[in-house]
């Protein structure tokens, strides 16, 4: 199941290789998608992600059509027709306004896109690094392996949020920087350890031996034979990285440490900043953003678990 490509036969007919691969990948994909669809856990996650995607797409459309940017701009908007802010939910502001008179729903929807971007960048950076290092360390072993694994031990025991708090005092950290830092931390840390141990099992499989005898160079073996077999696991860890990226961003914004214009975490920081954090009557200042953060983190995590049950047959029922 973990192999989406078959590699031993490559050497025979190189011209039709890509078509064979494509067909096999497509078949594997269809089969895995069917497996995924059987598991409500993964599907719920997937549905939540779709809802957030719709929100991200809808925001610019709404701003350009029904929402007047002067009132509804997530950062600079203010509704002066309402005498006192924060105002509770009303027909014009479905989720009320914050203490600066800005529409909460608009802020919520506006932030979605950047959360996706943050998660995507972090996940891609993590997986690129972790897969390459994992494959290389497993293939060569020895000193390369030792160096990367000791370093990974160091990164693993470093609490993300704590380190990021420190980094944000030392440097200006915005969305992009944050995404890259999280990507690096994941890529050199736990994800590498896990992918490397998978790479070790891939390495010892016989067809790798076969490929070696047939005269493939090291790079060829790593990139053509080991890495393709690591991709499902890498994909799984992309999901988990998205969760941790969004979570870290939210916490740091909540602490007011990030240099960004708007995000879910920042919305709660604003609430705290204006002294409404413990004012539980004004739920719309805390709940929408918090629920969004939780739901998005949970969604990617659930999808990850759904994938886990596909690529790890030992978790499967039959």
């Amino acid at each position: 199941m973990a192999e989406t490509t078959i590699t031993g036969s490559d050497l025979v007919k190189p011209d039709s290789l890509w078509r064979i691969r494509l067909r096999l990948s497509w078949q594997a994909f269809k089969k895995n998608a069917a497996l995924f669809a059987e598991n409500p856990v993964g599907l719920i996650g997937f549905a939540i992600i779709l809802i957030f995607m719709l929100m991200a797409v809808a925001h610019p459309i709404l701003i350009n059509t029904v929402w007047d940017p002067v009132i509804y701009d997530p950062v600079t908007g203010i509704d002066i027709t309402i005498p006192f802010h924060p105002s509770p939910p009303s027909p014009t502001h479905l989720l009320g306004t914050d203490s600066f008179g800005r529409d909460v729903l608009s802020q919520l929807m506006f932030s979605t896109a950047s959360e996706f971007a943050l998660g995507a960048v972090a996940a891609i950076v993590t997986v690129l690094i972790a897969t390459t290092i994992g494959a290389v360390a497993a293939y060569y072993g020895g000193i390369i392996d030792t160096i990367f694994m000791r370093f990974a031990d160091l990164v693993v025991m470093t609490p993300f949020v704590t380190l990021l708090i420190v980094l944000s005092t030392l440097f200006e950290v915005g969305m992009i920087e944050l995404a890259i830092i999280i990507g690096l931390l994941g890529g050199f840390g736990s994800t590498t350890i896990i992918i490397k141990s998978q790479a070790l099992t891939v390495k010892v499989r016989t067809y790798i031996e076969a490929a070696r005898i047939a005269g493939g160079g090291d790079a060829r073996i790593i990139f053509r034979h080991i890495i393709p077999n690591l991709l499902p696991l890498s994909f799984l860890y992309m999901m988990f990285t998205v969760t941790s990226a969004i979570f870290s961003e939210a916490v740091l914004s909540f602490f007011g440490l990030l240099n960004i214009r708007m995000s879910w975490g920042l919305m709660i920081f604003t609430t705290q900043f204006s002294g409404y954090l413990l004012d539980f009557e004004k739920w719309w200042l805390i709940y929408p953003a918090s629920v969004a953060i939780t739901a998005m983190c949970a969604a990617f995590y659930l999808v990850g678990r759904g994938i886990d049950e596909i690529i790890n047959p030992r978790l499967r029922r039959r």
Binding site: I268, I286, S290, I293, T294, C297, A298, R305
Partner: peptide
Amino acid sequence: YASTIGGVSLYTVFTPWFALIMI
């Protein structure tokens, strides 16, 4: 399914919010 989803929600909950709810 309920406990998996409940567990995951608790695992990924926005911690400050959770602490606030507890308070």
